[in-house]
Design a protein around this nucleic acid. Structure first.
Length: 909
DNA sequence: GTGGAATATACTGCTTTGCGCTCC
DNA sequence: AGGAGCGCTTTGCAGTATATTCCA
């Protein structure tokens, strides 16, 4: 039940401003992180305690699990030392079995020392089945917070990279490297994807992914270094490509797959590409990266025998220095050799570390793929050798040697180079799927131009449809693809995702994400839409010239028709609006999934079997297709049903003669309650009907028509009240007055009213109605409010009078208590003092003192303030003689004086 | 490896109109 | 006598979402 309040808090945080929401999220995360680390520390302490207990009290532990394990008996002894993984200690789970015979544990008995050493070479968690446990709401909330904060960090990172891509010095340096023949791309009037091929190939042949462990302080410095060495992390090389395109005056975005921490707790490990890890400023997940690097190194070792004769050793050694050895037109899987080099380097430095690691299934698969790739390389070596080197083309003999080319696939319709799916699997094994690329706006593509995916790192142009497949092959399904430009960002995931239903559950709720992106999207739009008008005019010319005789590819037909329509309608549609439309069109034209589970929460399609209790298809059609024989309907046909009563709350009533759209069983609790009510009525045959619930759809309702108020009488329900779920539920001619204490006012004026029941709250195990104000006929509203105001005034005056009288009473109590205390103290002194009885002054005046005390008490009864009460001297009781009193008529203060000098001021009321 | 069914479990939403005692 | 105020143990079930396991 805690989660309800949590949900409320969650909604509240979402409804706040973006900045406050972000701050709150970061704050919460930090708080939790601190708490978590503290808790973890505590947990470890606990574990240590546990271990010490384990060491000290093996017998006790054994007693608890008496007769369980042979192995446990075998470790019984006075001295037991165990090397135990701390993480498992708090989950001691004794098992039956012989330790000596166990495969996962090795026990060495040192009989001579009577000491037993138990070494676990494998974690029990890997052999034991993990206990099934769902993440709690708190864990989910934490995961969501991490997800959001990570997203914000990655957005910032992308903006940073985008900013550096605009650096004029870097752009100028890149331009100075580009051969003059490539520079004319800037002057192409109608840029097409095919026009980018040559410059992309040039770039790819001159810049490769390399691993640098040195962080030079800023991304700009790193990028400058990468430019200098013709290699860097995948992010840097992609950024260089973006800078180059921008230098060539092409409208270009830096696109990044945000490899964000999972939205769900403990599902996948967030990370980044291997080569980026050492340099990433955030350095969050270095451990994960390190392990993956190790994997690569290991793989390299295990395939070493295949490499011995294939001539790749030279590549390993001379890669960064040698000249380009193959033509720029040839497409190559460069990452293999790059990674081989990196891995070989690591291997050489840590030969023993990887020699004993077991081969995994994935490694074997990888080796198989690599062997196939290498055999293809061997076949192509002769051909590649015969081809001329591109030294002259590149214009630099000092450029690093490009790797051996393995495979190329040319798609004639695009005239661009795209790697096959099999090759994508190979790259994914090595360095993971591409995480960074560029988008270049080609005004010559389709009718209105479009953004073209350009992965210069891998030499891919217009390969947007392969991004999802490669990501899936690399076990890193894309969640967010964001394009950065002009300091802004835009979510372009739709362009690269064909199966939105797969990634939708992995993304944060769209409202938050849209709010985050809204300001960034404007910035991005301003940066990339600045030349819209010129293009629009050009487009109009083109339209008149070509008379719309444009042959589109099948996939472009829908989006182009949309674009044309939009442009024709508005005349001012800009590039971003067109792109939005394109992405929207993609969202609405997703292919039908082939498995039934996918329809469970699909945003476009639905299977009837996955409808919930309160859902129905209306209308039931059209059938969009079939999945395993089940008809597929559009999600837009799904309607939510409600009971008559629930519709009433929304100010709707079910139309006459409407049959229920669905009849479902009532909850047992409700049935039980109703049947107990009906027992008295001894209704027979109605129990079955009471056990069901009739549901109606929105289309079966009409606006609520309540009886009108007549002759000043408010129409009430059977309980003599009006249920005011909303303003729509008020009977016509009545008003809801929400002030308190209106009932006596209405009664006094003899105006008909009804208590307004606004809802229920659950208190002490039962629902209790909440009343707020009354419902009266509209004509009495002013009269009641006037009387209410008058009554409130009177009540406030009465309240004030009561308050003052209470204050007086409390003052009297205070002063009385002071006097009582004084009297008690005097009495105590009298009885305790041995000379008290000998004091003639007191004896003589005893009676008169009592009288005077009485008079003082009377005076104090009417007093409000004792101005000064001095401490009482020992053995002396003050006597205030009447002749010594004075009275100030202006201030009404009476001063009483004792002969000893003590005085009391009393204010007369 | 994938899909589907079955199962387990955490979370969420729905339900909905006291009663007895004390004080004034 | 009667009206107003106050304090009681904290519903509990069904549906849904989601993870996991098993099997084909």
């Amino acid at each position: 039940m805690r989660t309800r309040s949590q949900s409320q808090r969650k909604e509240e945080s979402e409804s706040g401003s973006l900045a406050s929401a972000s701050k709150e999220a970061v704050g919460k995360l930090l708080k939790r992180a601190r708490k978590g680390s503290k808790a973890k520390g505590q947990q470890e302490d606990d574990i240590l305690v546990e271990v010490s207990k384990f060491k000290e009290l093996p017998r006790e532990k054994d007693k608890r699990d008496e007769g369980n394990s042979v192995g446990r008996k075998s470790i019984e002894g006075d001295d037991v030392e165990g090397s135990v993984r701390l993480g498992d200690v708090n989950e001691f789970d004794w098992e039956d079995g012989d330790i000596l015979a166990s495969e996962s544990k090795e026990a060495y008995l040192h009989d001579s020392e009577k000491e037993i050493t138990v070494e676990f070479t494998d974690s029990p968690s890997t052999t034991q089945r993990k206990p099934s446990r769902r993440a709690t709401a708190e864990e989910k909330e934490l995961a969501e917070l991490v997800h959001k904060v990570h997203l914000l960090c990655l957005l910032s990172r992308g903006r940073l990279v985008d900013q550096v891509c605009n650096d004029l010095l870097i752009q100028a340096s890149l331009l100075s490297l580009v051969p003059p023949s490539q520079l004319n791309i800037a002057e192409v009037p109608r840029l097409r994807a095919s026009s980018l091929g040559s410059v992309v190939n040039w770039f790819r042949n001159n810049f490769q992914i390399q691993s640098h462990d040195i962080d030079r302080g800023s991304f700009k410095s790193n990028l400058a270094f990468a430019l200098d060495t013709r290699g860097g992390t995948a992010e840097e090389v992609a950024a260089l490509s973006v800078a180059l395109f921008r230098a060539l005056n092409l409208t270009t975005r830096f696109v990044s797959v945000l490899d964000v921490a999972s939205l769900k707790p403990d599902t996948d490990v967030p990370g980044c590409s291997n080569t980026d890890a050492p340099r990433l400023d955030t350095k969050i997940f270095s451990s994960a990266v390190a392990s993956s690097s190790d994997d690569v190194s290991h793989k390299n070792l295990t395939r070493g025998k295949h490499h011995s004769n294939d001539g790749r050793q030279s590549c390993k050694r001379s890669l960064p220095k040698g000249p380009a050895s193959t033509t720029g037109a040839e497409d190559v899987i460069s990452r293999d050799s790059m990674a081989n080099k990196l891995c070989s380097d690591k291997l050489e430095s840590h030969p023993a570390k990887f020699a004993v690691r077991p081969k995994r299934k994935g490694d074997a698969e990888f080796e198989l793929q690599l062997e196939m790739a290498l055999s293809a390389t061997a076949a192509g070596v002769g051909a590649s050798n015969s081809m001329s080197h591109i030294d002259g083309l590149s214009g630099s003999s000092s450029l690093p040697s490009p790797p051996k080319k393995l495979k190329k696939i040319v798609f004639p319709e695009h005239e661009s180079v795209i790697q096959s799916s099999s090759s994508s699997a190979v790259w994914s094994r090595k360095l993971g799927p591409p995480q960074y690329w560029a988008e270049v706006y080609c005004n010559g593509e389709t009718l209105n131009g479009r953004w073209i995916h350009v992965d210069a790192v891998n030499g891919i142009v217009d390969g947007e449809s392969d991004v999802e497949a490669s990501a899936a092959a690399g076990r890193k399904p894309i969640k967010y693809v964001v394009a950065f430009s002009g300091g802004g960002a835009k979510d372009v995931t739709r362009r690269y995702c064909m199966h939105w239903y797969k990634i939708a559950p992995r993304r944060v709720n769209s409202r938050w994400w849209d709010e985050v992106l809204a300001p960034l999207k404007r910035l991005e739009s301003d940066a990339t839409g600045s030349i819209v008008h010129m293009e629009a005019s050009e487009r109009k010319e083109m339209e008149s010239e070509e008379c719309l005789n444009v042959v589109n590819t099948t996939s472009d037909i829908i989006e182009d028709s949309n674009k044309v329509g939009a442009v024709q309608n508005s005349g001012l549609a800009n590039r971003n609006a067109l792109e939005d439309m394109e992405l929207e069109t993609r969202a609405l034209t997703e292919p039908l999934p082939t498995n039934q589970q996918a329809y469970k929460n699909h945003h476009l399609y639905v299977l009837e079997r996955w409808l919930t209790k309160y859902q129905v298809l209306h209308p039931k059609g059209p059938v969009l297709g079939y999945c395993s024989g089940h008809p597929v309907y559009p999600r837009s046909c799904v309607r939510t049903l409600q009971t008559r009563h629930k519709w009433l709350r929304e100010g709707l009533q079910v139309m006459a003669n409407e049959f229920p759209a669905k009849v479902v069983k009532h909850s047992k609790k409700f049935v039980k309650m109703r049947t107990s009510e009906l027992e008295d009525a001894s209704a027979t045959g109605e129990e079955n009907s009471e056990a069901t619930m009739e549901l109606y759809g929105r289309w079966q309702t009409e606006p609520l028509r309540l009886p009108c108020a007549k002759n000043g009488i408010v129409p009430k329900n059977e309980r003599g009240q009006v249920d005011v779920w909303s303003e729509k539920c008020l009977p016509p001619g009545t008003v809801h007055l929400k002030f308190p204490r209106l009932v006596p006012v209405a009664r006094r004026l003899e105006i008909d009213f009804a208590p307004a029941m606004v809802g229920f709250e659950f208190r002490n195990g039962r629902s209790v109605p909440i009343f707020e104000g009354i419902v009266v006929c509209s004509e009495f509203k002013d009269a009641i409010l006037a009387a209410f105001a008058e009554e409130e005034e009177r009540r406030e005056a009465e309240e004030k009078r009561r308050f003052e009288s209470e204050a007086l009473s409390r003052w009297f109590q205070l002063l009385s208590s002071i006097i009582t205390r004084q009297r008690l103290q005097n009495s105590y002194v009298e009885f305790s003092s041995p000379n008290a009885l000998d004091n003639p002054h007191i004896d003589e005046n005893d009676k008169s003192n009592d009288d005077k005390k009485q008079s003082m008490s009377d005076d104090l009864k009417s007093s409000q303030n004792a101005a000064s009460i001095m401490p009482i001297r020992d053995h002396h009781e003050h006597v205030f003689l009447i002749e010594d009193q004075s009275f100030d008529e202006e201030s009404f203060i009476q001063t009483k004086r004792c002969r000893c000098g003590f005085s009391v001021q009393v204010e007369e009321l």
